[in-house]
Design a binder for these strands. Sequence first.
RNA 1: GGAGAGGUCGCAUAGCGGUCUAGUGCGCCGCCUUGGAAAGGCGGUAUGCCUUCACGGGCAUCGAGGGUUCGAAUCCCUCCCUCUCCGCCA
Length: 430
Amino acid sequence: MLDIKFIRQNPDKVKEGIAKKQAKVDIDRLLELDAKKKALTKKIEDLKSEQNKISKGVKEAPTKTEAIAKDVDSQMYYETITSARNLKNEIKGLEPELERIAKELEELMRRIPNLPLEEVPDGKDDTQNVVLREEGKKPEFDFKPRDHMEIAEALDLIDTKRAAKVAGTRFGYIKGKAALLQFALINLAFELLMKEKFTPVVPPVMLKPEMMEAMGYTERGGEEIYFLEKDNLYLIGTSEQSIGAMHQGEIFEESEFPKRYAGFSTCFRREAGAYGKDTRGILRVHQFDKVEMFSFCHPDKSREEHKFLLAMEEKLMQALKIPYRVLNICAGDLGDPAAAKYDIEAWMPGQGEYRETHSTSNTTDYQMRRLNIKYRDTKTKKLEFVHALNGTAFAIGRMLIAIIENYQQENGSVEVPKVLQKYTGFKKIG
RNA sequence: GGAGAGGUCGCAUAGCGGUCUAGUGCGCCGCCUUGGAAAGGCGGUAUGCCUUCACGGGCAUCGAGGGUUCGAAUCCCUCCCUCUCCGCCA
């Protein structure tokens, strides 16, 4: 959600930003509705004001006896309540129109994505993302590198066939040393994050609809999310959603910033639009575990914090010695809540290409406005909206793929990255 | 799942149709007092929207949404949440 005042004052900037994001929202119509709403609200409030004044003058209804005794008073009383009743009816007559206008306005407001920051590259889709840099040395093999499933099936690490039997496609059993590797990755992530004042958290994986809406994931991405109809709850697609909503309605002290969380949760995605895409293995599944970073910070510091989250992601990749590249995501490829986003793609030798493993977004105040999360500004003494950012620490499934493919040996075994060995207790799989 | 209690200003609590412009205590801020502090005294202390150069004014908000009424924190309905006891349970 954007600030309506900002839209009123900068309609052209808003239109430009929306266009850059490849979204379509009729801003002129929005402003027209806004003006209508304002005028009608004023009218209704004036009537209410009058009604309130009359009601205050009524004091108390005379009893029947009193009414007979003081004929004049009762006459005045009934005239007064009649005029108040008329006002009430007049207000009631106007309210449906106001409701209709407010609803349409709200719908338009909801559909406006967060505007891209100035430094975000233009571009219409993922083909126009900008590669900022490539890091790490790609492993060289004396043999044709295999893809993760070929290795994992041979070592009985990942079983998608039986998973399909019990749950359908896009699920997997992660077994044996791969399961232990998962825990090692979680441990490594928390070890590194705790050094940077992240508070570890295991959040709810179900979320009320209003919270999911506030986080901005029910508009264009609504099809992506599981919804439990019986319980009126969404399953989270990322712990960003339940961590961001955690402080709904709260007010931060400036001294608390940056408030960082490291969340671990299972994530659920319908992958509705991805039929036939990445069907092999566990790259794209309905359920995976993820360690996520989330940061609440001062609006002036969010760009800096975004760089920090990216740096953390790189640190984690570098610890594993997995080659990767960093992408600056172009405006047209940004999700609704994001004002800027960097992706990290890990080199996957088995596939011979880079695949996304990390993503960090600066959502500025877009989510915070609807969640009503503020801080008391020490300079202005006013309440202002907080900025929020999120970033992947490890999406476990995809990291397993990256490790398996990068650390594979000619004999079909997989070495364990050195930094993980103290957690796994073994150095090799197979 | 069953039975009961309850959600009021940052926190605690009062209020049970008009006197609520929501009282009181704590906390917080300012001032007085002091060599300095504590204690004490005095004053202040919500948010959003609209309006105004400003002072100010209007409307809304007592978990959320509807309803009754001239008038609702207060009465009625629906929902959400919390607590206590019982049952079930990792």
